[in-house]
């Protein structure tokens, strides 16, 4: 398949704003046009090929190699295609994503999938803070789509998210699901403190014990039917979510009563 391959040849000294690296932008452009795309190195306007070797043209499939720690806004607002990154990537990866998939074989910075609407992002390493969150001042975080993080995630996972799903394979830090308004967060490795603070609606599922805030009220233990469906969906994405009664059950907490909110936190209790 026709592919565009970018290889970082010179690490940027300061942050490189590279929102042009999207399938939408590359799709109808020749190799020369792609090379000439404008990126901002700090405040200075540069060409994409000042930093990257570019192979291929006119494709919505992009493969990037190199340590992109200081490269921001990759895949911003893209609506289609694939971006694969072999190496670490900087902040705002797939922010405002509206379709397509992004896969990172490495770690990602803060604001992965910030305010995204559609599509899928898979980080094989760790993610930074504010995964799928709302930007400062904004009413809503991610509104749809899926974010999978195999490793750990920073604070405020899914802050103000409205719909969609976030799966964190490792541990999430403080304030996972802060002020959540809907959607689902699955914490395979549990989380640090203040999980679900200010949540209004939505579901947080943890496969490990959580230190819950006193504003969450225990409201029974059961095996919710919807988890059968979720589990099957997640299976295809390579995530194992237990649901069978034989294996255990979920303790349900509702809150955050301090708001007051109608969200729920489900904590997996394996059968003895």
């Amino acid at each position: 398949m026709n592919k565009i391959k970018l290889t970082l040849k010179k690490a940027p000294v300061v942050v490189l704003e590279a929102e042009v690296i999207t399938p939408d932008h590359f799709l109808d452009r020749s190799n020369e046009q792609i090379r000439a795309s404008v990126v901002y190195h700090g405040k200075r306007e540069k060409r994409l090929d000042d930093f990257f070797d570019v192979e291929g043209e006119r494709s919505d499939c992009i493969e990037i190699h190199g340590d992109l720690n200081r490269v921001r806004h990759v895949g911003r607002a893209m609506t289609r295609g694939e971006v694969t990154i072999h190496g670490d990537v900087g902040m705002h990866l797939g922010a405002l994503l509206n379709g397509g998939t992004i896969e990172v074989f490495g770690n990602a910075g803060d604001w992965v999938g910030g305010e995204m609407k559609k599509g899928k992002i898979h980080i094989h390493g760790d993610a930074g803070q504010q995964v799928g969150a709302a930007y400062r001042g904004s009413m809503m975080g991610m509104k749809g789509g899926t974010i999978l993080v195999d490793g750990n995630a920073g604070i405020e996972v899914g802050m103000r998210m409205r719909r969609g799903m976030i799966v964190i394979g490792g541990t999430a830090r403080d304030f996972a699901g802060l002020q959540m308004k809907g959607g689902t967060i699955i914490l395979c490795g549990g989380a640090e403190i203040r999980t679900g603070a200010w949540m209004q609606r939505g579901t947080i599922i943890s496969l490990k014990e959580l230190a819950l805030m006193p504003t969450f009220a225990e409201s029974g233990a059961y095996n919710p039917t919807f988890l059968n469906v979720y589990s099957r969906h997640l299976d295809a994405l390579g995530v194992k979510l237990p649901y069978a009664e034989a294996d255990g059950r979920y303790r349900r907490y509702s809150g955050d009563r301090g708001v007051p909110g109608k969200g729920e936190i489900l904590i997996w209790e394996p059968a003895l």
């Binding site: 405002l96 930007y135 400062r136 001042g137 904004s138």
Partner: peptide, 14 residues
């Protein structure tokens, strides 16, 4: 100052 969220989605003059 009260609407920082707008700054990132709006037209920028370079």
């Amino acid at each position: 100052a009260m609407t920082p969220e707008d700054h990132r989605r709006t037209q920028a003059f370079i």
